[in-house]
Design a protein around this nucleic acid. Structure first.
Length: 284
DNA sequence: AGCTACTCCTGGTAGC
DNA sequence: TGCTACCAGGAGTAGC
């Protein structure tokens, strides 16, 4: 499922195809993809505007729009589980899972494909309304060890659900949380406010390292869903230490990796490398 | 504040 | 072979 590294990869690869392009046509094949607005209002808001910038915030791909050289809202694309974005020939027939298409000049189109229909491609007149609710970007300057130490101290919550909370820190999902926690040697049920400063710093470092490495490898592809806009799989899945490896030996210590559920999410750990908190008695 | 349960979806797979 | 049941999960929401 696309998280920060996958969304960053997608954004980089579609950028040359969409920036500076006017939207000449809008085709919505699944109404709920555009959210509350509905497809006719969506089309009215978007048609004729120009995409001036494609960038990423958390797991959103943001397409800033202009009309008559003035800012005119943004498109927010969230891939959720199975969403894919790529450039297609505007004359091609829409595929079975295609949900939306923006028609651009020179017979090009930006296509949104999403098997499970969880993804969203919405228009926001004021995108800050959505984006300002998100926590800091883990790869930006603002995410400092000092900020992280303090933020963790202020939360009486287990690390796993906290790191998945986009209003706390933006862009991590199930895979990269499990990988970061393993690399930091921290059990997912450890409580944030009880971490030492040293542990907080270690986690900070591993989060950044994992995300940066995953971007370098164009994300992770382990099922048929995530592909780059060029149709290529990423390769970070080969670096997974714990995700999807339950029952297999830990690469660090050889202990059998375990999977359990935390907040309805499959959670992968090495119980020897990641000691459970005492408060979580009985739990892994 | 933070927890759980539920919702949205469908392809893939396990089990019979 | 063909059927059913269940699983994966990001984010929003409701209820406690």
């Amino acid at each position: 499922m696309p998280e920060l590294p996958e969304v960053e990869t997608v954004t980089r690869l579609i950028r040359p195809g969409v920036e500076a392009q006017p939207i000449r046509g809008v085709e919505v094949y699944w109404d709920r993809t555009v959210g509350e607005l509905g497809s006719s209002a969506f089309e009215r808001e978007v048609l004729g505007k120009r995409i001036v910038r494609a960038w990423r915030r958390a797991k959103y791909i943001v397409l800033d729009l202009e009309q008559s050289k003035r800012p005119a809202g943004s498109l927010l694309v969230h891939l959720r589980m199975t969403g894919r974005l790529h450039m297609v020939d505007a004359r091609s027939e829409p595929g079975p899972y295609e949900r939306l298409r923006l028609l651009l000049p020179r017979k090009r189109a930006l296509s949104f494909v999403d098997v499970r229909k969880f993804g969203r491609f919405t228009y926001e007149a004021d995108p800050a309304r959505v984006l300002d609710r998100l926590g800091p970007e883990p790869l930006e300057e603002e995410f400092t060890p000092a900020w992280f130490r303090k933020a963790l101290k202020g939360r009486q919550r287990a690390l796993k659900p906290l790191l998945l909370d986009q209003s706390f820190l933006a862009g991590l999902g199930n895979i990269y949380v499990d990988e970061s926690l393993f690399r930091a040697g921290l059990h997912p049920l450890r409580l944030a406010h009880k971490l030492t400063g040293k542990h907080a710093d270690r986690l900070h470092e591993e989060i950044r390292r994992v995300l940066a490495d995953a971007i370098e490898r164009e994300g992770s592809s382990f099922d048929t869903f995530y592909r780059t806009p060029e149709g290529q799989p990423g390769s970070y899945q080969h670096q997974f230490q714990v995700y999807g490896r339950d029952g297999k030996p830990c690469r660090a210590c050889g202990a059998t990796l375990r999977k359990f559920i935390v907040g309805q999410r499959g959670t992968h750990v090495c119980l020897r490398c990641q000691r459970p908190p005492r408060s979580g008695a009985g739990l892994p």
